[in-house]
Design a binder for these strands. Structure first.
Length: 790
DNA sequence: AACTTGTGATTTTTT
DNA sequence: ATCACAAGTT
């Protein structure tokens, strides 16, 4: 709360607390917004011409630099608000930036039409030139649900077993291609062939065709089609290059390939592009983010200035030291060293507990203790690696009566009832919206099933008309059974009646009427499950939210890209969220449970991405620690239930990587935690002191641990032996052995796999093999799962 | 068309 | 263990 960057000091017209010089500048009508910036921040703000990369470590005032830079450009008269492009990843970030610019620069800031997410800005551009990419400017934006429904249809039409080739995976694959800027024609042949026995590329192409027929774009298209628009229409590109005199990009480390290409095209105009980011906080590689974009910036944009923000205004000394010590284990980083003038403060703690239940209990107690000392609940957060960890905390907090809230979870507009309600509105307002129609045509139940829908599809395809129109025709024929025909007729009559009321009735009321008359709200009222009441609440909230828009069309336009969940706050609460959701936030006290091998770093991340995966996990740990202002409290459990089975776990390797001089190891209340394996490891942390620090020593230590455990002398006997032989040793072996040495398998080698049978190695990537299996097709497998077959 | 049983998957998440 | 989803059954 004592944020030295609090904006109030810069927006108030009152005399500044900034000393004589500052006051003199203010009196001279000077650039007060620059006051209080440190030299690096100021350099980042003032270097407005040419490409600039601002490497902004956690808590170094990144958003402040971005917003002040915009204010500076405006104040200097270098560009007007509509000539600045400012891109963020999330709506939340965009909103925050807009608000803060408004505080600095006044109402001009609010009028920035090109401040928004990549997707929102792309949509805006695309609607203006839609016909150039084969869409109408009224195109609808499909979300993931619609996308999957459509893909299922494509798979069915191609007669592909969607059990073996799920629509979900195809959606994921297509998304990945789009993230990399690949349209169907440019997907590498090998990758296109990998899905559904060679049909992947064709399915992608068919899906794109269907999208065009439906006049729809999915999220990936918004970027990819804009890119295509720019590439195929140099005049259009030129127009935007000229328009955007200055460009700013937030969270540059999260850009994927399309976004990078999109930016580069635009930046080729005036070269005034400023990217702000932190390679150490890149945690979205799994959804296409390319850390390389930030690592390559200087070569991509020749003559670029690179400015490092390393002065941290958030955390105390020990916390920063621990974060720095951990992240130093990553290779492939640009390298920054955060420092602070703040006190050393409390050391982060590491606490071992017996199991996840004790973990929840212990953390609950610590929070209660803090609360008794007067700490606010909303200054405490629990950051988990995976969402299943949340439940145990929730249960514990409910019994304790400790107020908490879970951040993340299903977003408001993704909830079934909201999507259903929206589908009704889409059917009424945009009668060509087949996907919306399919969604609600039998919701609530009105006796319409698969076979009737099939008939409508058939006619629709034949006549090239949307489903609703097909239905209008079909109800006049005998082809549909009487009962179904009547149900359809009623539904269509309702659609028409509601449609005629658009513009007549306020859209909020109209929506209520639709939900009432369609029987939709009744459906939930009759539902006696626990969630039903909440769903009705959400529908009310939806109506309330839409009333803030001038009309239905405006609401529908916004809904697909920006719709925020509500939650009016009922007092201060402890926040429970994933580490990913915590990026950009900060708390006085942060609890970091579950630091165990397999969970954190997550096994799957290691399996799928090897060393890169491990480094991303480490960055995630870094993000977690740097959320804390004054207290960071790490926990690990010796036993954890995974998929219903209790498993013995060993402490995360990240714990070993924390600088011992800055960490306090806490004995768990029960003492149980230090039985077994945990003991040997953490006892070392104290007794070995500084020797402990070298990576080589640690690796050696880990290799000998097995031996030591087997002797049973120093640590917990049989218990330790059992754990040391499992899982994590493999991880270690794999990572250390395989990252340096090359694979034992060569391209073309014949191999055998327990599940997929015989096959030939098509490619080798470290410990991962791409194998063409005789029966199962192309798969990527870990080397350790196949054996050589001559 | 609605209900029942069986199968498989189960990190992270925005737009 | 648990849940979602899909095929099989009534």
């Amino acid at each position: 709360m004592t944020d030295p960057f609090s904006l109030s000091e810069t927006d108030a017209p009152a005399p500044q607390p900034g000393g004589i010089a500052a006051r003199a500048r203010a009196a001279a009508g000077g650039r007060r917004y620059l006051d209080g910036l440190n030299p690096e921040q100021r350099a980042a703000v003032e270097a407005i011409d040419g490409p600039v990369l601002v490497l902004a470590g956690a808590g170094t005032g990144k958003t402040r630099v971005l917003t002040t830079r915009i204010a500076h450009i405006l104040a200097e008269g270098r560009a007007r608000a509509h000539e600045i492009l400012a891109v963020t990843f999330t709506n939340k970030a965009a909103r925050e930036m807009r608000d803060r610019v408004a505080l600095l620069a006044g109402p001009v800031g609010e009028g920035m039409p090109w401040l928004g997410t990549f997707h929102a800005i792309s949509t805006k551009i695309l609607r203006r030139h839609a016909e150039l990419v084969g869409l109408k400017s009224s195109f609808t934006i499909l979300d993931t649900d619609d996308q999957i429904r459509l893909l299922k249809q494509v798979l069915k039409a191609e007669d592909i077993d969607d059990k073996r080739w799920p629509a979900r995976s195809l959606a994921y694959q297509i998304d990945a291609w789009k993230n990399r800027g690949l349209d169907p024609a440019h997907v590498p042949a090998g990758e296109a062939a990998a899905f559904a026995n060679g049909k992947g590329g064709r399915l992608y192409a068919l899906y794109q065709e269907r999208l065009k027929i439906l006049n729809a774009a999915d999220f990936g298209d918004l970027l990819l089609e804009t890119l295509r628009l720019f590439k195929e229409n140099p005049d259009v590109l030129k127009q935007y290059q000229d328009r955007f005199k200055y460009m700013l990009v937030d969270e540059y480390q999260d850009t994927n390939t399309v976004q990078y290409l999109w930016l580069r095209l635009l930046a080729q105009g005036r070269h005034n592009v400023c990217c702000v980011g932190d390679d150490d906080q890149s945690i979205y590689g799994w959804r296409g983010a390319e850390v390389d974009n930030i690592l390559r910036f200087e070569s991509d944009f020749p003559g670029a200035k690179v400015i490092r923000l390393e002065r941290n205004y958030r955390s105390t000394g020990h916390i920063l030291a621990v974060a720095a010590g951990l992240i130093a284990h990553n290779q492939g980083r640009l390298g920054k060293t955060l420092f602070t003038d703040d006190e050393a403060g409390l050391m982060p703690t590491v606490t071992g507990v017996w199991d996840s239940e004790e973990e929840a209990r212990g953390i609950g107690e610590e929070i209660e203790q803090l609360a008794r000392k007067g700490h606010a609940y909303d200054e405490v957060a629990i950051l988990v690696r995976a969402s299943f960890q949340m439940r145990e905390f929730e249960e514990r907090f409910i019994t304790l009566g400790l107020p908490y809230r879970v951040i993340g979870g299903p977003r408001f507009y993704e909830r079934a009832e909201i999507r259903d309600a929206l589908a009704y509105l889409r059917c009424v307002a945009q009668p060509a919206d087949d996907l919306a129609f399919e969604r609600i045509y039998n919701t609530p139940r009105r006796g319409l099933g698969e076979s009737t829908l099939q008939q409508l599809h058939e006619y629709g395809r034949l006549q090239r008309v949307p489903l609703i129109e097909a239905a209008r025709f079909m109800i006049e024929t005998d082809e549909i059974k009487p009962k179904q025909r009547q149900a359809l007729r009623d539904l269509l009559a309702n659609f028409s009646r509601w449609a005629s009321l658009i513009g007549e009735k306020p859209h909020g009321e109209l929506t209520e009427m639709i939900l009432e008359e369609s029987g939709y709200t009744d459906m939930w009222r009759k539902d006696r499950t626990a969630e039903a009441a909440g769903r009705l609440e959400n529908l009310k909230e939806l109506v309330r939210a839409m009333e803030e828009f001038p009309d239905l069309a405006a609401f529908l336009e916004h809904i697909s890209l920006v719709m925020e969940a509500e939650t009016k706050d009922a007092g201060p609460r402890v926040s429970i969220m994933t580490l990913h959701a915590a990026k950009g936030l900060e708390f006085e006290t942060v609890f970091l449970p579950g630091w165990e091998e397999g969970l954190f770093p997550h096994q799957r991340s290691l399996d799928e991405s090897g060393r890169a995966g491990l480094e991303e996990e480490r960055r995630l740990a870094y993000v977690g620690i740097t959320r804390a202002r004054r207290r960071a409290k790490i926990y690990f459990a010796t036993n954890r239930r995974i998929h219903g089975l209790w498993q013995t776990t060993i402490p995360s390797r990240f714990l070993d990587e924390l600088p011992p001089d800055h960490v306090e190891v806490v004995e768990a209340a029960t003492g149980a935690a230090y039985g077994g394996y945990a003991q040997s490891r953490f006892a070392n942390m104290d007794s070995f002191g500084s020797t402990y620090g070298t990576p080589g020593w640690r690796r050696a230590q880990r290799r000998t641990e097995e031996t030591r455990a087997e002797s049973g002398a120093s640590s917990g006997g049989g218990f330790a032996r059992k754990t040391s032989q499992r899982g994590p040793m493999q991880i270690e072996g794999e990572l250390i052995a395989k990252s340096s040495a090359s694979s034992a398998f060569a391209k073309g080698a014949r191999v055998f796999h327990q599940k997929f049978g015989y096959g030939a190695v098509a490619a080798v990537d470290g410990n991962k093999l791409t194998v063409d299996f005789d029966k199962a097709g192309r798969k990527m497998v870990l080397e350790s799962f196949v054996e050589a077959k001559g």
